[in-house]
Write a protein that binds this DNA or RNA. Structure first.
Lengths: 222, 222
DNA sequence: GTCTATACGGCGATAGAC
DNA sequence: GTCTATCGCCGTATAGAC
């Protein structure tokens, strides 16, 4: 099996390099300026390429945006589902809301803490999740599976709770979580630098404690 | 004092009517499509006016956006500060986190529940609060005073807590709150219609309970 | 106070050379 | 696979009539 010639391999590598470069660049600019605030020319220039090349790879602006999101959402979702499965298997009926939230959020915070690209991706997720526009459907398609998995586990952790309280608990959790991954810097300003919205370990620890206790109260567990 | 002639009064009323109409229309479109997703032509057409008239009143697109935000933020902030003052005066050292959150959020939810314009405004606040861009500074200027007031009261409610935990508690609360006023409809989909993100009374009640208990746990009160 | 007409730049998108 | 050149539209903004 030697049908891949050196030149062809080189082309493939080159393509891979360009594509990654473009995705990374687009990710950063989408994170900073939003979808409508970002132009193809901007991305092309910053990536050292041309708009025609972006179209060659991603068809149009929507395609580029989709590609930026899917690259990482598939990865983080797979990790999350694995972590949730593992937690359910190990805890069984002794499952706690803190354990569920930990399994869902820790993998994401770990990725974000270690990599600037993940930080940009997280900022995009944060603003999409708070928007009403058409963009939200893209996210829904990517995240509904993991969300429903969390809700199912919550139902098992609170078997006597009214189903609606479970949904409200998840709702508040999502709000706090997505705001936390958005790195808006607002709490940095309000606290005059005493805490930082980039301190992801601290945020994850406290998010689990705070929303865990809150949801337990809401869902009426002793 | 009769120096205002009938014609001048009519003009003033007409202006008032046009200005309000334009603000209401712009508010709805900004809420639906974001700042960069909204055009002056769109707003002008929907308001039954012309782009030149929008510029006559609001100078440019930024001015229009500012005007949309300020109209309501000034109003809700004044109500909030009054409510917080009243609560502090009545509760004194018996102040609870639930009482603080109630005073801060209930006025906003009441306004939103009763009026579509307020709903659009709230959606704008929600997405700005989750964005990194330049838009956030506008909000910061409008909301920092009320935010710092809440934080000051929280400090009094948890005199023994580490200051940083207060900030994190406020951070999670803001995330859950702004997400709740954004009416993204996401929880409606996830719950298959069993709860509605337009049910503001229900949300306010549960937000106070959930974040109240969570923050109490975080800030280490018995 | 409100509109018509228009300038001007930048946007997404395309054809085609290399 | 990558770029140059260019199109046509639509965005904000302006001048000036009514």
């Amino acid at each position: 099996m030697n049908d891949i010639q050196p030149t062809r391999r080189k082309q493939a590598e080159r393509r891979q390099g360009s594509e990654t470069k473009i995705l990374d660049t687009a990710e950063a600019i989408f994170a900073a300026n939003g979808f409508n605030g970002t132009t193809m020319h901007q991305v092309a220039k910053a990536a050292g390429a041309d708009t025609a090349l972006l179209r060659y790879y991603f068809t149009d602006k929507d395609g580029l945006f989709d590609a930026v999101l899917k690259r990482r959402s598939h990865e983080v979702n797979a990790i999350r589902l694995t972590a949730l499965d593992a937690y359910e298997a190990s805890a069984g009926d002794a499952m706690t809301i803190e354990g569920i939230l930990e399994a869902f959020t820790r993998p994401a915070f770990d990725l974000i803490a270690a990599d600037e690209g993940w930080q940009n991706y997280a900022a995009i997720v944060a603003y999409i999740n708070s928007s009403r526009g058409a963009l939200r459907q893209v996210m829904s398609a990517n995240f509904d599976v993991a969300s429903q998995r969390v809700i199912a586990l919550m139902r098992r952790a609170f078997p006597h709770a009214d189903e609606r309280e479970i949904y409200w608990g998840y709702h508040f959790f999502t709000g706090a979580f997505t705001f936390s991954i958005g790195q808006t810097g607002r709490i940095d300003v309000l606290s005059d630098g005493k805490v930082s919205s980039l301190d992801f370990d601290a945020i994850c620890d406290r998010l689990v404690v705070t929303l865990g206790a809150g949801i337990r109260e809401l869902c009426g567990r002793r």
